[in-house]
Design a protein around this nucleic acid. Structure first.
Lengths: 203, 203
DNA sequence: CCGCGGACGATAACGCCGTTATGGCAGGAT
DNA sequence: ATCCTGCCATAACGGCGTTATCGTCCGCGG
């Protein structure tokens, strides 16, 4: 439609289009929410036709799966960027802060990843869920470090990490849904005290 | 279409249709999820035309709002049905169990109520959110009872309730999203220990 | 008892959606 | 040079939310 000759042979145009579509999809989801993520809108945005969605991804659900996978990768990168220090408990708080920051930066994406946001009848496969648990593994690693350092009592690190994740996820979801104002300054009266209580219980 | 003469004058047929549509909407949402809740499907299911959605509710979002309001009412009824006993801490656990049971019984509805499930671009107003906080008020009341009985240390009951709700909501959301299997027997390794840790911290 | 006004819903249309079929055009293989 | 294969534009189908139009039925004033 725009340019009849897309003769850009060298940089593998198909992959370039694929990436353009994924970027456009992530942008649409992030900026305008799930309802803006449609085949036609996406094709318009990426300068192609709706068929590209099917030739490159096989349909809208598969494309969403890739966007979700990239969201998990971003989360993993952001949490993984937290540097380990000697204060293993402070590291745990930093992990939680990074997790929350990622969710607040990409609220719609987080809702699709971990919430039950269906996004047009689409739901996660077990495989995607497994990918999403990488960040949970990072949290488990942080717990193990704290246990090894003697800052936390020994125990099943997965259980401890599960409890921390549950509280953290609950706070983030309430925050994203707009229910955090049940108290003033929810971050300092709900989130951090909650995690501190957990750490105390595991000490 | 089906019966030409709907001459059932006595029981106010319009309200009967309203109720039929609300029931059908709740049933569709509960049984088949948000994507099944469409004007045409709903009209078919309730034996009317799509116009009824607009004459009686003013559009799909308003209808969803009423369904959500009824969901909040159900939650309130279920949590309110927990009888107070002398063991105020056990009462808190019973409140949490009732809250969770309601969420598990109506997972899609819970996701629309508290999650960020958009349901076709629709999102809650502040007014609906306020209605949803009635159940939170019940939790606050339970906390106040426990404080009055000396089972919990005195403090801001809203803060304590907010922390309990955060953990409870987090667990329920992970459960609904299918992420609870990070540990074995999540209810007894995540949910109840988590709430017990909170109670201990508030004792 | 009759006529009328207004409410209610059935019908149809508009533009959007996801998906599929069809067709044409380029590039590489033969 | 020819064919074949992959890729994308176009167009179509059914379903969606929403709106306008219109017929029909009910209750009310005469």
């Amino acid at each position: 439609m725009s340019d009849r000759l897309q003769a850009t042979p060298a940089p593998s145009p198909d992959d370039a289009l694929r990436r353009r579509m994924l970027e456009a999809a992530a942008r649409l989801l992030g900026e305008e929410g799930p309802s803006a993520l449609s085949t036609r809108r996406l094709a318009r945005e990426a300068g192609t036709s709706t068929m590209a969605v099917y030739t490159h991804f096989g349909g809208m659900p598969a494309l969403v799966r890739e966007v979700v996978a990239e969201g998990f990768a971003r989360l993993e990168a952001r949490v993984g960027a937290v540097p380990p220090t000697d204060d293993t408990l402070a590291d745990l708080r930093a992990l939680a802060a990074a997790y929350r920051a990622n969710a607040l930066a990409n609220p719609h994406l987080y809702a699709v990843m971990f919430g039950s946001a269906s996004l047009g009848g689409y739901r996660l496969h077990d495989e995607e869920r497994a990918v999403g648990l990488v960040a949970f593994g990072q949290l488990v690693a942080g717990i193990v470090r704290a246990m090894d350092a003697g800052a936390l009592r020994r125990g099943d690190p997965a259980v401890a990490a599960g409890q921390v994740w549950t509280a953290l996820h609950g706070y983030v979801m309430l925050e994203l849904a707009g229910f955090q104002h049940v108290v003033d300054d929810p971050e300092h009266t709900l989130l951090w005290p909650l995690l501190d209580h957990l750490v105390d219980a595991l000490t």
